[in-house]
Amino acid sequence: MSPADLAVDSGRCLIDLGETGPTLHQITQGVALLPTARDKTRAVFLTYEAESLLRQGEIDHSAALAGEALVLAQRIGASRCLRQISDLARGYEPHRKVQGVEQFLSIVRAAA
């Protein structure tokens, strides 16, 4: 397991435990350590980071990262990540008026 994987997996566990404080740092660190050759993993990690931000109320930043993950997942055909993003998109429904959210949701709908 690489340091990038370890950092993001730690962040993912923190999300599952509801500990959103240190989560973002762990995931961001893992994404930064990830080599560009691992784009599929990058898309998954960006989705985790978007989920962490969404739970922390950073809706606009979260939607931007989720959109980035979606574009990357579409480009490389990462179907598992596309499902994760689609599932995550439900969390944005109450925030349609936040900048970038409606655009993100329409991209998700178009991808479905």
Rank of each mutant, 00 (worst) to 15 (best):
Y92Q: 06
F45G: 00
Q56V: 10
L82W: 02
T41V: 12
E93A: 12
L46G: 01
E93M: 06
I85W: 01
Q84R: 09
R75T: 15
A50L: 06
H25T: 11
A78S: 11
G11V: 02
H95S: 13
D5C: 09
G18S: 11
Y48W: 09
I85N: 03
S2Y: 05
L14F: 14
E19V: 07
L14D: 12
L33D: 07
K40N: 08
S2T: 14
A7Q: 08
G100H: 10
D9S: 06
T20W: 14
S106W: 05
L88Y: 05
G11H: 00
E68C: 10
A4T: 10
G21T: 13
R55Q: 14
S62L: 05
R38Y: 06
Y92V: 06
Q84D: 15
R90C: 10
D60T: 15
G30I: 03
I107Q: 14
A110P: 07
D5R: 11
V108I: 14
G91A: 07
L54T: 04
L6I: 13
H61G: 08
I15F: 13
Q84G: 03
M1P: 09
E51A: 04
G67Y: 05
T47S: 14
L70P: 08
E93D: 12
G77C: 13
Y48S: 08
I85G: 04
A78V: 02
F104N: 02
V98P: 00
L53V: 02
E93W: 06
K97L: 12
V44G: 00
L72K: 05
L33P: 07
K40D: 10
G67P: 10
E49H: 05
A66E: 01
I85F: 03
G11W: 00
V101I: 13
T23I: 12
S10V: 13
I15C: 15
L14K: 10
H61Q: 15
A63E: 02
A50H: 01
T20I: 15
S2F: 05
L65E: 02
K40C: 05
L46R: 01
Q29P: 05
A66Q: 01
E93T: 10
A112D: 14
Q103N: 13
G91H: 03
M1Y: 03
S52I: 03
T47Q: 07
P94L: 09
I15E: 14
L33I: 13
P35I: 08
G30F: 01
A43H: 03
A73W: 00
A64M: 09
P94K: 09
S52G: 15
T47N: 14
H25A: 13
Q99K: 14
Q99G: 12
G77Y: 06
R55F: 03
A37G: 15
C13V: 12
Y48H: 11
S62F: 01
A43L: 04
L14V: 08
D9I: 02
L24Q: 12
V31T: 08
Y48I: 04
V98S: 09
F45M: 05
E58C: 08
P35K: 04
M1F: 03
A64P: 03
T41F: 02
T28H: 09
S62H: 03
T47F: 01
A32I: 12
L46V: 08
L53G: 04
P3D: 10
V8G: 00
R55C: 07
L82K: 06
L33W: 11
I85H: 02
R109W: 14
K40H: 09
G18L: 07
P94F: 14
A78T: 02
E93R: 08
I27E: 00
T28G: 15
S62W: 00
L24T: 15
V101E: 10
V108Y: 11
D87C: 07
V31G: 02
